[in-house]
């Protein structure tokens, strides 16, 4: 049923009337999945129909937890509505008007999560001394890389070889891997610098005639570009 309705979205007014007569949009609960009918098939929304920017962290910090909880669901519904409309427009190969609305709602959702995390973090730091975010551990992988890894939560304590650690001395394979890796990175860096120097040297004429850079140098000063 959904797709039949969605497929009818067209910019012309007769189609709009057709859509409004469909039973789905007369149902007020289902209607919440759809945008205002005036916005269907528009290239760009009028300023009066264009919602404003997302909530900032500073504004969200003024609000109680209940308010944030409510706002989260308001924004979630709005995001679902926009995603429905985006899919409907894409399915009928139409231009979805003002897609930045979606990013704005997503921005608000992200900010709410940040503010909630801040509050929880403050509470847990005070009560337990631990952060609210998942702990991180420094581990050394079998390839010899030492890096920060986000720890995962488990019901049982770690068994044999399940918990990673930082290793001060690498075994032979890891050591060789690191040597080769560093050599490759060094070569990449050298090539990058070389390319940069060539780009700086190339002028418009050289680009136009597809001519390469200079090959012979009489003076040491000219060579400096390549160093």
């Amino acid at each position: 049923m959904f797709f039949r309705i969605i497929n009818r979205i067209q910019p012309c007014t007769s189609q709009q009337r057709l859509l409004s007569r469909s039973p789905a949009l007369q149902n007020s609960l289902l209607q919440q999945f759809f945008d205002d009918e005036e916005n269907f098939g528009k290239q760009e929304l009028r300023a009066k129909k264009r919602p404003g920017r997302s909530w900032t962290n500073e504004e969200l910090r003024l609000k109680s937890s209940e308010d944030l909880h409510k706002l989260w669901y308001v924004c979630l519904k709005e995001r679902n509505m926009l995603l429905t409309m985006e899919k409907a427009h894409k399915a009928t190969a139409r231009h979805f008007p003002n897609p930045e609305r979606l990013d704005r709602v997503k921005g608000t959702l992200k900010n709410i999560e940040e503010v909630v995390h801040e509050r929880n973090d403050a509470y847990y730091q005070l009560e337990t001394g631990d952060s609210a975010s998942a702990p991180k551990r420094t581990v050394t992988s079998f390839m010899g890389f030492t890096y920060e890894k986000r720890a995962e939560e488990h019901y049982s304590p770690p068994g044999e070889g399940q918990k990673g650690y930082e290793v001060p001395y690498l075994d032979d394979d890891a050591y060789l891997m690191q040597k080769l890796w560093n050599e490759k990175e060094l070569c990449k860096e050298r090539d990058r610098k070389d390319n940069l120097a060539r780009r700086q040297l190339a002028n418009d004429e050289m680009k136009h005639y597809k001519r390469g850079g200079r090959r012979t140098f009489d003076r040491l000063e000219d060579l400096k570009v390549y160093q």
Binding site: W55, E59, R61, L62, K63, S64, S65, E66, D67, L68, H69, V116, R119, N120, Y123, Y124, L126, E127
Partner: peptide, 20 residues
Amino acid sequence: VLRITFKPKLMAFEEEIMES
């Protein structure tokens, strides 16, 4: 937007919502 409704409570966010 600028109306302050925040009341600090010694509770996690989830606990506060559960209480409400």
